[in-house]
Design a protein around this nucleic acid. Structure first.
Length: 565
RNA sequence: GCGCCCGUAGCUCAGUGGAUAGAGCGUCAGGUUGCGGACCUGAAGGUCGUGGGUUCGAGUCCCGCCGGGCGCGCCA
């Protein structure tokens, strides 16, 4: 990989630096007053204006400084503008082509062509790194998601958590962090035994127990039962429930892993609840809490004093019968995760678990961990509907649509885009029939089409001898070209924002915008023209950079970028 | 009752406290003698649930109310 003197930082960050420098110089020159120690000063921020007439980037610092400085916003803006005009681009030359003061106190900035061209050159030089940014404080994050107990195949109710978790990991990684994908499941509880009992009962031709499982997959398990387990089931049905349950659970777990692989989701770690007990993590965590006085006994049970941290009630760790609660394992798991060197834990839970967030963070705090390092993202419910009728999702009753069935109907790319483009906290209606009918109109195809169209142009370019003849110089000659460059250079900023917010809607919006801008460019600017080789080379540079950006944005979402479609 | 989340165009949803609130789908009217028409151009469509407050500036922050979802176990 070659390294050049090209800005790898987002342009927005360069603008922010320039603003900071301008402020300092304005103070140094006396144009703005020195800052008093105790004043509450605004953060140095720049923004991408919605209105193109307001430039590529803007700042409202003049307005925000008006109160602490006790001066007119416009006056401050003018002082900042005067210094911003001198701001230098990393590669030399000025960073801004124009600096304008606008009432009531904005400063609107337009990047110099050379600065924009330098970004395009960087994209072409290092396409794989385009859209990956450095984090100010890189996290070593553990992201736990899905974590459905292996008592049945994943159904469409698990879809959102699976996609959102994976998307979050991808976004964190692009944002300069490290993410480990972790799946946690119960391998010894009553549910496992009930699954085994269900298999045994069906094999014996008896009714499935009250709290058993009865989907078609249970019958598949019966048919696949190995001979030794089958013999045990026939000999001693009661005792076999456990062994058969463990076997069945592992079969189901493998099926889940395969389904997830089909979604493009691969876990780094599969962690069992039993291991947390067997390896002593739970006991040690409880001891740790006890030492610091956060545990007490009452009514034969062991309690965590969660109210000391603002919870509305204390929480049971060990029941009066001695069994640990789910919460007990959670506590042990926190210490186990931190012991592996993670400095940040992310839990992706369904919104119905919001009541358990406080106790987990309280326990982490009580054990001496940074409360803020335990982050819980609550995913809102998806209401699955078939032609207006809500689809029931009961694993026990065997009434559910599996993830595999859903994807066979609407496709992975389409499903990924659907979930990526919506805020995880927003409850959504998902009409499966509607999704099938509309799958051809899914916006994801709009973006993929732009990518395929570019691939076609580049093939044509090669046929005309322009294979390697790409030259960024003069690429911003026309209005369509300028608009395209201005659209694509924002990509790293979008990634930064996505990682910070733990959301991906910004990426889908960006990709759609870029595709739209490209289609307009395509309409206005003929790329390949053998009579205009220089212009062709310049436009090819833009087209290629656009393709890289679209491909990387789609890859960030785990979506394919087809060469043709 | 208490707590958390949500309420933006006909539908599904975007919108780090900034300037004239957007997209897709749907509806209506247009566009091919040239690199992919799965595309493009335009129009209609909004008291951002509601009433206050903070702010130079509120869809965004705070409080009340209305409506919807979810929690409030020695279940997981």
């Amino acid at each position: 990989m070659t390294t050049t003197a090209i800005p790898h930082r987002p342009l927005r960050a360069l603008a922010r630096d320039a603003l900071r420098g301008a402020w300092d110089r304005a103070v140094a020159s006396g144009a703005l007053p020195p800052t008093k120690p105790d004043t509450d000063l605004p953060a140095i921020e720049v923004e991408r204006p919605a209105n193109p007439a307001h430039g590529d980037i803007a700042t409202s610092l003049g307005l925000k400084l008006a109160r602490p400085y006790r001066r007119a916003p416009l006056e401050i803006a003018r002082a900042l503008a005067a210094e911003l005009e001198r701001a230098e681009a990393p590669g030399g030359g000025t960073l801004f082509a124009s600096v304008e003061v606008a009432p009531p106190g904005f400063v609107n900035l337009r990047f110099a062509d050379a600065a924009l061209e330098a970004v395009v050159a960087a994209v072409l030089d290092q396409p794989a790194g385009w859209g990956r940014v450095h984090a100010a404080k890189p996290l070593k994050a553990n992201v736990e998601f899905v974590s459905a107990n292996p008592t049945g195949p994943l159904h469409i109710g698990n879809a959102r958590g699976a996609f959102v978790g994976d998307l979050l990991c991808r976004v964190l990684e692009a944002g300069g962090h490290h993410a480990t994908r972790e799946y946690y499941f119960n391998d010894f509880g009553a549910q496992v035994r009930n699954l085994g009992a269900s298999v045994v009962a069906i094999r014996a031709g008896q009714a499935v127990p009250e709290d058993g499982y009865r989907g078609a997959y249970v019958h598949d398990l019966v048919a696949a039962l190995p001979s030794d387990l089958a013999a045990e089931a026939d000999r001693d049905p009661d005792a076999a429930s456990w062994t058969v349950g463990r076997w069945a659970s592992e079969q189901v777990r493998r099926g889940i892993e395969a389904s997830l692989a089909h979604l493009g989701v691969h876990f780094d770690v599969w962690k069992t609840e039993s291991s947390l007990h067997d390896e002593g993590w739970v006991a040690r965590a409880v001891a740790r809490l006890r030492e610091s006085g956060h545990v007490y006994e009452e009514g034969g049970a062991t309690w965590f004093r969660s109210t000391a941290f603002g919870d509305d009630k204390d929480r049971v760790i060990y029941k009066s019968n001695g069994d640990p609660t789910y919460f007990a394992a959670d506590i042990g798991y926190v210490t186990e995760k931190f012991s592996r060197g993670f400095d940040h834990l992310v839990y992706i839970w369904g919104a119905d678990h919001h009541g358990t967030v406080a106790r987990l963070q309280n326990a982490a705090q009580a054990m001496g961990f940074d409360r803020a390092a335990v982050e819980v993202l609550l995913i809102a419910w998806v209401r699955f509907v078939r032609d207006g009728v809500e689809a029931s999702m009961s694993k026990r009753a065997g009434e559910f649509i599996t993830l595999d069935e859903l994807l066979a109907e609407i496709g992975v790319d389409s499903a990924r885009w659907f979930f990526a483009s919506r805020a995880p906290t927003t409850g959504i209606d998902f009409d499966i029939e509607l999704a099938k009918r509309q799958s051809n109109e899914n916006p994801v195809y709009y973006v993929q089409y732009a990518h395929a169209r570019i691939a076609s142009i580049l093939r044509k370019a090669a046929e005309n001898g322009f294979e390697r003849a790409i030259d960024v110089r003069g690429a911003l000659a026309g209005a369509s070209e300028a608009a395209l460059v201005r659209a694509l250079v924002r990509f790293p900023e979008v990634v930064e924002d996505a990682a910070a917010a733990r959301e991906t809607q910004g990426v889908t919006t960006f990709a759609t915008d870029l595709a739209t801008t490209f289609h307009a460019f395509y309409r206005d600017a003929r790329v390949i023209d053998p009579d205009e080789p220089e212009r062709t080379r310049a436009r090819l540079a833009l087209v290629r950079a656009t393709q890289v950006t679209l491909a990387n944005a789609l890859a960030l979402l785990g979506i394919s970028a087809p060469e043709s479609m």
